[in-house]
Design a protein around this nucleic acid. Structure first.
Lengths: 357, 357
DNA sequence: ATGAAAGCGCTAACAT
DNA sequence: ATGTTAGCGCTTTCAT
């Protein structure tokens, strides 16, 4: 494959001139420029970014690590990140950690080795990225959505407690539910704690006693959510509503409800954390707290960029507010509409368009 | 950041030795080895893959381009590809083309510039990757799922026609439906044509006249599917079943059915192309043709690998069979089960596990 | 068993 | 306005 030297030879100029016309770094006469472009064309020259990056010590690439790219939340954040990054001339590469700290560690090493300019990471469970010798102390890094106990790092996340508080308050104040169960994620998880705190606050604020019997561990999984639902519904005292603290569990809960032939919201109202297109398609459409994917991505990017450009040295923790979608599952009235459906992405396009496969 | 020279200085050996112990390229005495590893540790040395790749002319990276990573089909293929690639020491980077040929072209250039060893591409609509001067003629490339008219390239795809034929035959032979509508994807699309052919064959094989009035264009979109459903159901003659040739449209059809308060499969049975977890969660659970994500990924990888290693020069077109999931929407009996749910991935794990986000 | 040095393809400082 | 060349960090051949 042709390199810059070949092109230079063909155009009868020096390699410096080739570099200059390709990058617009210096003035080059029109005549020479033309010869250069012709030579580029003829040789099918494609600049070698490895060599370039090695020289300029910059790849203009951001590395992103998520647990599962199949998760619509992360797929969405990835594409938004890709889009904002592009406007600043950056590209981004994603990797799946499978929520496994070993895999995550390998990936971090790989990405560092590949000289990404910055890292955006959704830390795996028991993540080791806080180990001093994994990521260099001053390396541009932002933690997304999940935090690591006792690790000081730039981060962007959402108002877990406040959002939950508001959603549960809605259940209480708008619909008058009092016996509200809670399905929590893995208890070790920081996010889980924040969300549960929001639930407790909402009850207390409204003088409803927090009943530990009404708090179920859904373990952050689909099956866990289903089992929690089963346990919850076998209680003798009738429940009025349930708040489910994560998408996957939420789906599990709905699935179990259907299996047990429990009508929602008639028999029990449901409200959950994290929205996705599935929530709209399900029967009934699920009310849920929506994460601001675009803002999350934009803030994450501007935070890495700031570090890359040495604009700031002190660490920032950005916490973004969430909106809640009140649909049918909580007891609200909500009208599905085909034409306006799924068109609320940042670019107004439905993401699944035209993928026949 | 420390480089190989720094490590060499600290260990009091030559850079060659550092390279040799890190890569196990040559025998090095245990004593020196130890000194080297200590120095690596102390300096926090991370090898620079750019320099390495520049030298060895190989990155062990595969570039993948899909339309939308949010599409569960592609997210799934990506992760499977990542997993098989890993077993051979390769990593893979994905990019979103947004199904836009311009973006796709840019991405191809970027990936080539970044010296990926091979390319796995789901071509965008009106793709330009067949242009002679975009991808070098002998560059390791495999087209995934979609083909390009008149472009000779390695590819892996699925049996579109045969799968559709079988699924529609099921509708006819098992359930006895005769008036079966068809919602097609974008008509320009090759896959669309293959699938429609399968539908036609199935009808003809069973002496059912193909009625053009029963063929609707869903345009490969959610909205298109919904509109097709609306049109279809406004027909005076009662339909018994419908085959929907793509996931997105399928979802649109189901959504519209619910809006119009049409019961499925009682009022109309539904069968679709492409399975995803959504299909199981929906009410009723949707019968659909399942793409073999793992096999698709494995074949795609072995095909690029073969080219990378110059093992083969002639082009191959691999066509994989699909299985069909007969669930409730076509009229079959199907029992949802929480514990076995979503555990049928290649590694037996439910993909959304533990994503609290 | 270890080291010296050339060279991968590029950019940029310096020279003309 | 264009060219020469050192050097980015590594691997590998050839010496020792």
């Amino acid at each position: 494959m042709a390199n810059i030297k070949d092109v230079a030879a063909k155009a009868n100029v020096s390699v410096a001139t080739i570099s200059n016309v390709l990058n617009g770094t210096k003035y080059v006469s029109d005549e020479v420029k033309e010869r250069v472009w012709d030579a580029v064309e003829e040789t099918g020259y494609i600049p070698n970014n490895l060599a370039r990056s090695l020289k300029v010590k910059r790849t203009r690439t951001i590395g992103m690590i998520v647990a599962y790219i199949e998760n619509p939340i992360y797929a969405g954040i990835f594409r938004e990140l890709e889009m904002t990054a592009k406007t600043k001339g950056y590209s981004v590469v994603v990797c799946n950690s499978n929520d496994d700290p070993e895999t995550e560690e390998q990936l971090v090493k790989l990405l560092l080795s590949n000289k990404v300019d910055g890292l955006v990471i959704v830390p795996a469970k028991n993540s080791k990225i806080s180990n001093k010798n994994l990521i260099p102390p001053d390396f541009p890094l932002v933690l997304l959505n999940r935090k690591i106990n006792g690790f000081q790092a730039n981060s962007v996340g959402i108002e877990n407690e406040k959002s939950t508080f508001e959603a549960v308050s809605h259940l209480i104040n708008v619909h008058g539910y009092k016996r509200i169960a809670y399905v929590s994620g893995e208890t070790s998880n920081l996010l889980s704690k924040e969300r549960k705190e929001g639930y407790i606050q909402a009850l207390e604020e409204n003088d409803i006693k927090v009943d530990p019997e009404l708090i179920f561990n859904g373990d952050s999984t689909f099956q866990g959510g289903g089992r929690a639902a089963a346990a919850m519904l076998s209680q003798t005292d009738r429940l009025e509503a349930v708040f489910v603290a994560g998408t996957t569990m939420l789906l599990g809960v709905m699935f179990q409800l259907k299996i047990m032939n429990i009508s929602c919201p008639k028999d029990i109202a449901v409200m959950g954390f994290s929205d996705s297109s599935m929530n709209i398609l399900l029967d009934p459409p699920i009310s849920s707290i929506t994460q601001p994917l675009k803002e999350l991505a934009e803030n994450a990017f501007s935070l890495v960029l700031k570090q890359i450009e040495h604009k700031s040295t002190d660490i920032e923790n950005i916490i973004l507010p969430c909106k809640t979608q009140y649909r049918s599952s909580c007891g609200c009235k909500w009208e599905p509409d085909l034409e306006s459906f799924f068109t609320n992405n940042s670019d107004g396009k439905y993401r699944f368009d035209l993928i026949e496969s």
